[in-house]
Design a protein around this nucleic acid. Structure first.
Lengths: 159, 159
DNA sequence: GCGTCAAATGTAATATTATAACATGAGAGC
DNA sequence: GCTCTCATGTTATAATATTACATTTGACGC
């Protein structure tokens, strides 16, 4: 699975994720309803993070709901089932690139092109986990988001 | 400097931070105005993160300003000069525990008692930095926040 | 079929967080 | 005293998110 920054077959990328969501829902008796499915598709369109209010007009135009709770509910569903993540720094959501796998996501956010790449993080076993353990702090969830410049945007700058 | 979770002389804690802010301002020709100073004091009161709208009523009661921009400006000032940090996960701010030092903060947030501890993080040299370097991603800022249970709240639960 | 229950959706209203824009004031340096 | 910069006062509004309650739909047991 790609991280998003390098070149990749994005069609496969999308198909894989949708398929993973369908399978997971089938296996766990969850409903991937039209709204939920469409929101996931929108999140998958680019490797960007979308705000709830970026998504809402599209849903409204397609007759899938026009009020904020509609999109927030869909995002909650996707997030709690591991199909999407919230990027706290951006107050925005992005599709999960490792659906089905148990993972702690970390994000790299390019401030030039707004691309968001999800990479595996393992805070519990990493530096941070060791620091927490030392202090007797028990980690539940971790927010790890770095902002900077992605490889392609660095190239653009230097050429 | 304490992290906040363990027992400590909080008076010293506050005094040290205020002093550091005063010194830094004197050295850099910055003004630690009444509003700014008061906001810093409020952030230092407990090792908690405060939202802008938690702070505003106090400022208003003390005649230091009653409109949102007042508190946001003060927070911007404190943050850009390294006296406070924003905790993205909470949309709230906390006083810096290592003022004057060049550091990448990480936070441990106790979801039971709301205590926030700042610990040093070094993403650029740590696991995350290595991952970023490998991908050719250049890090500008890092948000590292873990949420879980602090030592004292774990004790309470088990007794 | 029919009742009933849970999950999902529709909708109005409102809460919370944050910023834009412009006017006013206060002090430093000339 | 002039002017320039920084800080503050104030109004309005933007952006993000949730509460609360009504309605619909489909599964399941009877």
């Amino acid at each position: 699975m790609s991280t998003g920054f390098e070149k990749h077959d994005h069609g496969t990328c999308v198909a894989t994720s949708i398929k993973a969501a369908e399978d997971h829902c089938a296996a766990h008796k969850l409903q991937l309803t039209p709204v939920r499915r469409r929101v996931l598709e929108l999140l998958l369109e680019g490797h960007k993070a979308l705000g709830a209010y970026d998504i809402l007009p599209t849903l409204a135009a397609e007759g899938l709901g026009s009020q904020p709770p509609v999109v927030y509910r869909a995002l909650d569903f996707l997030q709690s089932n591991g199909f999407a993540h919230k990027v706290e720094k951006l107050n925005a959501w992005t599709a999960c690139m490792h659906p089905g796998e148990d993972h702690n996501p970390a994000f790299m956010i390019c401030s030039d092109c707004d691309m968001v790449a999800e990479i595996p993080a393992s805070p519990v076993t990493g530096d941070l986990g060791r620091a927490a353990e030392k202090m007797g702090f028990s980690i539940n969830t971790a927010v790890i988001e770095v902002e900077g410049t992605c490889p392609s945007c660095q190239e653009v700058k230097t050429t």
